[in-house]
């Protein structure tokens, strides 16, 4: 049985808490306007990706041969390509591919990098030394070159691109998380956990991991922008998501390049989509890093 006199204040407190969250968010947006702008861009991309089936006026694959390379107009906001396909619809659907590949790749990279970093940082000793030398070797290859090499072995395609980009993102995630774990493991609560005979696994995953989540989120957010850019680069080079799928990178490559002088809108809009999306994720990632890093926090 509930007591109305108790419920009423708690509801009021609830609304108060929500209001307080909004107020803090607005204050944060004013303090980090670029981050807020990034968040808006990210939200727009997520909306485009989620609502593509609703807001795209045409089937992104449908070819209209009587509307080839029509310049942007009210009927075709971004114009049409050399097959008469509506570019606005293709860019909207492209957001889905971009997000899908980006999130999957970052999940692979961050998850693998974080686990390896956690184990390496916590265990230390020879294991740490060996795993970090492996990471040194891994990092010697620029991310996109490594992804290209992996795709060359696995072959083109959406899944392979996710794996390739994901694997190329393991070392940076590993380094950041290892650093955070090294700082964390010297804390007293870890010693306390050891004192009560907690297992190493429990200490790593129950106590340390939750405390290094902030850098993991920051790494993942920044990596997402890079992953989207890498996907676009691989598709641009013809080894990523294959046509006729409306991946932004492949839209920017091939036919767009051929018709750059005749129909520049074929390259401009997918290019703009890549630019804004990557900028959005990077700005958001930078802002999150600033917020969660006490050394960079204003007034800290």
């Amino acid at each position: 049985m509930s007591n109305p006199r108790i419920i009423a204040p708690s509801v009021a407190n609830g609304f108060g808490a929500v209001g307080e969250v909004w107020r803090r968010l607005i204050r944060l947006a004013f303090r980090k306007p670029l981050g807020a702008f990034g968040l808006v861009l990210v939200c727009l991309q997520l909306l485009a990706a989620g609502l593509a089936p609703v807001i795209a006026p045409y089937d992104p694959y449908e070819q209209y041969y009587d509307r080839i390379m029509v310049r942007p107009n009210l009927e075709h906001l971004f114009g049409t390509d050399n097959f008469g396909r509506d570019l606005f619809s293709r860019v909207m659907w492209g957001a889905q591919i971009s997000i899908k590949v980006g999130v999957a790749a970052v999940s692979i990279g961050t998850l693998l990098g974080s686990i390896l970093g956690l184990i390496s940082g916590y265990m230390g000793g020879k294991l740490d030394m060996i795993s970090q030398r492996i990471m040194d070797g891994w990092m010697a290859f620029p991310g996109i070159i490594l992804a290209l090499a992996i795709v060359a072995v696995l072959g083109p395609g959406e899944i392979n691109v996710m794996v390739a980009i994901g694997l190329s993102q393991v070392p940076p995630a590993n380094r950041v998380i290892r650093g955070a774990v090294l700082a964390e493991k010297s804390n007293l609560y870890i010693e306390a956990a050891r004192a009560i005979s907690s297992s190493e696994l429990r200490i790593m995953f129950r106590h340390i991991l939750p405390n290094v989540m902030a850098p993991i989120i920051v790494v993942a957010t920044i990596a997402l922008g890079q992953a989207i850019l890498s996907e676009a680069a691989l598709s641009f080079l013809g080894v990523g998501v294959q046509p006729p799928n409306p991946a932004w990178g492949s839209m920017l490559s091939g036919h767009s390049r051929t018709y750059m002088l005749v129909a520049p809108w074929m390259a401009i809009f997918p290019g703009l989509a890549i630019f804004l999306t990557v900028m959005g994720w990077n700005l958001l990632g930078d802002a999150l890093r600033d917020i969660w890093d006490p050394r960079l926090r204003t007034g800290a």
Binding site: Y61, F83, P244, H255
Partner: peptide, 10 residues
């Protein structure tokens, strides 16, 4: 080739 393949597939 890619142009022709895309139209053929469609």
């Amino acid at each position: 080739n890619p142009r022709i393949a895309e139209v053929t597939a469609r």
